[in-house]
């Protein structure tokens, strides 16, 4: 339930000491990652310089799927607790995850063009990540509609149920696509050997850490933005109630009311 607040009680910023510290760390980490990815780590024997794309591609994939999982958990928690925080977290996480999914698909396509000679392949991972993208778009479309109609109490289970099904659906899609492609796997594409070592492994790990931090930083800002938006709506509500009640007490012609 939203509590009435003064406009002055709202800090019109999405930042805090925690986000600033995290932001600085992320920025520094990004710098280190760029150095590691472009200068320090060697090119791959097979993939040559294209391997450097994976330092972005793999972390964004991990973060995107994690974001999707967070939305599912937040939806489940909202259905249990009905608290605004979980509700907003589901939205924030899905939105940020969508951006990372897009980056992941884009870098994947470029990497595929260089390594496999094709932007798209019916690879289980590409297919299920694309489906994740569409599932997220659908969820956000529904959230948008819910956001336009109805307040916290009404907008209800619709988005929560879709959000709850988000990650399970990704799993089901992934599983079925995986099974399907493994039966029809063509031998034309040689997959890269997942065993990488030394500087390359370190860079990849660093990428995962830095992109996770970046994700959390974005998530915090997006969450706080949604929170402020919610509070502004609540402020408007108090005014609206007062204005509507005032209609029942018009000033009488004699001036006494």
């Amino acid at each position: 339930m939203t509590t009435p607040l003064d406009a002055s009680a709202l800090r019109a910023t999405t930042g805090s000491r925690a986000t600033r510290l995290l932001g600085i760390l992320t920025l520094a980490g990004m710098g280190l990652l760029v150095w590691c990815a472009f200068w320090w780590s060697p090119p791959d024997v097979v993939q040559k310089d294209a391997v450097r794309l994976l330092y972005v591609h793999v972390p964004t994939a991990i973060v995107a799927f994690t974001g999707c999982l967070i939305t599912t958990v937040a939806s489940a928690m909202w259905l249990r607790r009905k608290s605004d925080g979980w509700w907003l977290l589901g939205l924030a996480s899905a939105e940020v995850a969508l951006v990372f999914t897009a980056v992941c698909l884009l870098t994947g396509a470029i990497w595929g063009r260089i390594t496999w000679g094709t932007y798209w392949d019916w690879d289980p991972r590409i297919t299920s990540t694309t489906m994740l993208f569409i599932l997220l778009v659908g969820y956000l479309a529904l959230r948008r509609i819910d956001g336009e109609s109805g307040d916290a109490a009404q907008r209800g289970g619709r988005s929560a149920v879709v959000g709850l099904l988000l990650f399970p659906n990704v799993l089901i899609v992934h599983f079925s696509v995986d099974w399907w492609r493994s039966l029809h796997q063509t031998a034309t594409i040689t997959r890269l050997d997942p065993t990488i070592e030394g500087a390359m492994l370190f860079t990849l790990m660093l990428g995962i850490v830095v992109f996770s931090m970046f994700f959390v930083w974005l998530l915090m800002h997006r969450f706080r933005l949604a929170w402020l938006d919610e509070r502004v709506g609540a402020l408007g509500l108090d005014d609206a109630i007062r204005a509507r009640r005032a209609e029942a007490h018009p000033p009488t012609p004699e001036g006494k009311s």
């Binding site: 307040d151 109490a153 009404q154 408007g236 509500l237 109630i241 509507r244 009640r245």
Partner: peptide, 12 residues
């Protein structure tokens, strides 16, 4: 109080 959208249809 009942709010429909952001409109307080019932205001007390």
């Amino acid at each position: 109080v009942t709010v429909l959208g952001r409109f307080p249809a019932l205001a007390g």
